[in-house]
Write a protein that binds this DNA or RNA. Structure first.
Length: 828
RNA sequence: GCCUGGGUGGUGGAACCGGUAGACACAAGGGACUUAAAAUCCCUUGGGGCUUGCCCCCGUGCGGGUUCGAUUCCCGCCCCAGGCACCA
């Protein structure tokens, strides 16, 4: 009776068995080692795509593997459910974002279940559930109390299409990360999280996360952008006050011959007021601001500047130096003012040549004479030795940076400082489908936090969406009208919602909790599970979600909600799924639908292909033939059992006791070698492709063995041992077909509850081994010799070998290199 | 410009600590079974050479080096992908 492999019925059957048994539900167990495995949760966009399938297949293999190894594995799934696509879709389909979102969740959940992923579904939640975001509002209040959430007016990135503000991290090449619309700068009152308070710890820990990919860490380090330098105050020449610059090159201070301000610098208007240059300056400023917006992502602008009419004093030379405004100086970095040292900074050099400003050389190469400033064709930006710099002349750049600054500090004109690129996280979004910010504005009391007892501020779901895409909240009076919590007078609610990245900044801790109503985080449970041992997701979140989550975890720790310093101990960034050379997308028409694939081939084949075709961190090229190949392999495994079921059922797996023939001992050895290889590949490297290849080799060898006739009573036991190993080893990858075959072989327990197989060292040893013989590093012969041969015996066998003799004939052997059990190299 | 990765057959990829380059697949070609097809199974498959041997030479982006031995380590280039960037 040869049942044909028909994935659909098998997969349905085992999925419901697992569900009925609650096979993947976990609770805290101090007796067992915990392992928290998490894949980035999806946005419920409608249907899962191949990227999800790949991401979750990788995670599922690890979860199932570790469970079989005896770990207490937490493997949850949920939904990153707030966000703008829901609003857009709802407007288009004339429905409500909530309905659209929850419908999508229902469908996508069923898709994930059909793929057989081993989640503890009892922990599922969506971030748009009131029971989730209510606690986020509490965190906001706690952060507000500690000054970690604050409101200020600022130039912010505004996306006209999305009708909302974007964080710096959400602007890519000057355009919105989601819709690609060019971002404009707009001055607005916004709420910020003070991520800069944690900048040092965030940076420090990038050196303490060995389980993260190097490139993600360096991306975060670049984003944080720490640089050491000095703040130097230049007194204004004809009035009170001073201009402060940030520089990393205090050693070049004697060469500062003018000053450059950003067009947005707050002192610009004052400095030119009443001067003949005023009109020209204001015109220049307007032009520069416009140009910045439109050309930000394109070519670097030609350097231009304009004199303000004012002067300041170089604090070491005491010279009056002109104050310019320059189009390349950015207000957001440093102080928005730059001391210009044309001899030693290329940008300043270009400006000086253009406006005929003095160029003064103050650094020379350590081993050469200084050149004349007039003959410079470009700035010399290298460190060197100071010249023409008063008491500092002769010092090296490094010495002078400190000495000059110390000298200034004594006079109150400067200080050593550290500058970061990272800026605070603007979290206000002028969107509807998000968590309301729990603030009420009162005419007399200003911004007043909603009292804890009044939480949650529930997002009203009875509102109608507006056609133009703007948030309906500001015009929805029942929501907006609220009494001031402080003076009870009339107030208006904040109608901005929080950036959806706030929700994804703590969901991983929430999965560890049981009681979702009474507290935000269940301290003891979170303590047991956190941090996440292994996090798996796409590289695109390298500085967004992965930085925000690290920050938020530290905030929650300092607020006393959890203990972990970092959310994710190990990070695996999986590659994209591509087809015909580019990422799958509707516009390219190269999308492969997971549903269709599961329908045609079954979940096991789809999972197998995703894991076999490439190692997880590399991009995966989708190949229809590759899928066929995966299906073919499963067919071979199926027939292995189906064609020999009775003989296999009756056989007791060989346990290594009792002598067996040469071929059978080869299979036995291969079985144990494969167990070792697969275990190592999955545990240490997540290289499922090579693990699968190893099992394929074992399957091939079983078929070869079956081709020989059963000659002794050990035959079926040895084959049975090998077949059992095959099923166990690939069960995390293709869980359904293996459960079915395992059951057919007479096992009573599911594979899910069966321990991972162990290999026996003694079974790996062969009596004879293959030794490679080289002459002068070139492969010349292979020898089969006894495994316990001494080096002496190896050498003797090699030298006596017929083929080796041909190459050695007539030459003197100068040296013989021996690698025991592996290789001999004869040097002549 | 700076910082990460990466470059191996027709294709995806393997070679884990410097030791048989191309495992395992896909594709292609040939064959078996079949009335035929599908399915399945077997063989060949980096390039070149002749003396066709379980032979020889070449071959892991390019050029050098270290070593008995280099896809692997070092130096100098080229190319591709990603990140940062008028950042003072």
């Amino acid at each position: 009776m040869n049942l044909k492999y028909s994935p659909r019925s098998i997969e349905n059957k085992w999925q419901s068995v697992w569900e009925q048994e609650g096979a993947f539900a976990v609770r805290e167990d101090p007796e067992r080692e915990k392992y928290y495995l998490l894949e980035m949760f999806p946005y419920p966009s409608g249907r899962i795509h191949m990227g999800h399938v790949r991401n979750y297949s990788i995670g599922d293999v690890v979860a199932r593997f570790l469970r079989m190894q005896g770990y207490n594995v937490l493997h949850p799934m949920g939904w990153d459910a707030f966000g703008m696509p829901a609003e857009n879709a709802a407007i288009k389909a004339k429905t409500h974002p909530a309905k659209w979102t929850y419908d999508n969740i229902d469908y996508m959940r069923s898709q994930l279940k059909k793929l057989g992923f081993s989640y503890d579904w009892s922990r599922e939640f969506a971030t748009c559930d009131v029971s989730y975001y209510r606690w986020e509002q509490l965190f906001f209040l706690k952060m507000y109390e500690k000054g970690l959430a604050y409101r200020r007016s600022a130039y912010v990135n505004w996306c006209e299409t999305c009708q909302t503000v974007l964080a710096n991290e959400q602007v890519e090449d000057g355009a919105c990360w989601r819709c690609d619309q060019a971002v404009v700068q707009k001055q607005m009152e916004q709420w910020f999280f003070r991520i800069t308070d944690y900048v040092e710890e965030l940076l420090d820990y990038t050196y303490k996360l060995p389980g993260w990919p190097e490139r993600v860490l360096t991306m975060q380090q670049n984003w944080i952008g720490k640089s050491f330098g000095s703040k130097i105050h230049f007194p204004l020449a004809d009035r009170e006050g001073s201009l402060t610059v940030f520089t990393t090159r205090a050693d070049t201070l004697f060469g500062a011959t003018f000053m450059s301000l950003a067009p947005e610098h707050p002192l610009v208007a004052e400095l030119c007021s009443g001067k003949p240059e005023q009109a020209g300056v204001l015109e220049f400023v307007e032009k520069a601001k416009l140009a910045k917006r439109s050309d930000r992502e394109t070519e670097i602008l030609e350097k231009e500047g304009v004199f303000t009419g004012s002067f300041c004093i170089n604090p070491v030379t005491q010279r009056r130096i002109p104050v310019y405004i320059a189009n390349f100086v950015v207000m957001e970095y440093g102080t928005g003012a730059v001391m210009a040292v044309p001899a030693h900074d290329q940008r300043d050099f270009e400006l000086a040549r253009k406006y005929d400003l003095p160029v003064k050389l103050v650094i020379k190469p350590a081993d050469a004479e200084p050149v004349a400033a007039e003959s410079l064709t470009q700035a010399d930006e290298e460190d060197g030795v100071l010249v023409d710099s008063g008491p500092f002349t002769g010092m090296t750049s490094a010495e002078a940076r400190e000495a000059v600054t110390r000298h200034l500090a004594e006079k109150g004109l400067g200080e050593l400082t550290v500058q970061y690129r990272l800026r605070d996280w603007g979290i206000s979004r002028q969107r509807y489908w998000g968590a309301p910010i729990p603030i009420i504005y009162c005419e007399s009391c200003g911004a007043v936090p909603v009292p804890e007892a009044d939480l949650p501020v529930v997002l009203p779901t009875e509102v109608a969406m507006l056609e133009n895409g703007a948030s309906p909240l500001p015009s929805y009076e029942p929501f907006v009208k609220a009494a001031c919590p402080r003076c009870k007078g009339p107030g208006r609610r904040e109608t901005d919602t929080m950036d959806t990245f706030v929700e994804s900044s703590w969901y991983f801790a929430r999965f560890a909790c049981a009681d979702h109503d009474r507290s935000p985080l269940d301290f003891e449970r979170v303590k047991y599970w956190m941090p996440v041992n292994q996090y798996i997701g796409g590289i695109e979140h390298a500085v967004l979600h992965l930085l925000y989550s690290r920050f938020f975890t530290k905030v929650l720790r300092d607020l006393g909600y959890l203990e972990a310093d970092e959310p994710f101990m190990n990070l695996l960034t999986q590659g994209m799924v591509i087809k015909d050379g580019s990422k799958m997308s509707k516009s390219k028409g190269n999308v492969v639908d997971p549903d269709e694939m599961v329908e045609n081939y079954g979940a096991d084949t789809v999972r197998l292909f995703c894991l076999f075709a490439a190692p997880p961190e590399k991009d995966l090229e989708w190949s229809a033939q590759g899928v066929e190949g995966a299906a073919r392999f499963l067919g071979r495994v199926w027939r292995l059992v189906a064609d020999h079921r009775d003989a296999l059922r009756e056989a007791v797996p060989y346990d290594g006791n009792g002598s067996i023939g040469r071929d059978l001992s080869g299979l036995h050895r291969k079985t144990h070698g494969t167990i070792k290889k697969v275990t190592d590949d999955i545990r240490d490297r997540f290289h499922f492709n090579t693990a699968i290849a190893a099992v394929m080799e074992l399957v091939n060898q079983i078929y070869q063995t079956l081709d020989s006739k059963p000659v002794d009573e050990a035959f079926w036991p040895v084959v049975r041992e090998a077949v059992d190993a095959v099923l166990l080893l690939i069960s995390p990858i293709v869980p359904h077909i293996t459960e079915e075959l395992w059951r057919q072989l007479g096992h009573a327990e599911t594979l899910v509850r069966t321990p991972w197989p162990a290999w026996r060292e003694d079974a790996l040893k062969a009596e004879e081994i293959l030794v490679v013989v080289q002459v002068n590093g070139k492969l010349r012969s292979r020898l089969v010799i006894a495994a316990d041969a001494t080096e002496e015996q190896m050498r003797k066998a090699a030298v006596e070998d017929r083929r080796v003799q041909e190459f050695v004939a007539g030459k003197t052997i100068r040296k013989i290199v021996t690698v025991p059990g592996k290789l001999i190299n004869i040097v002549v």
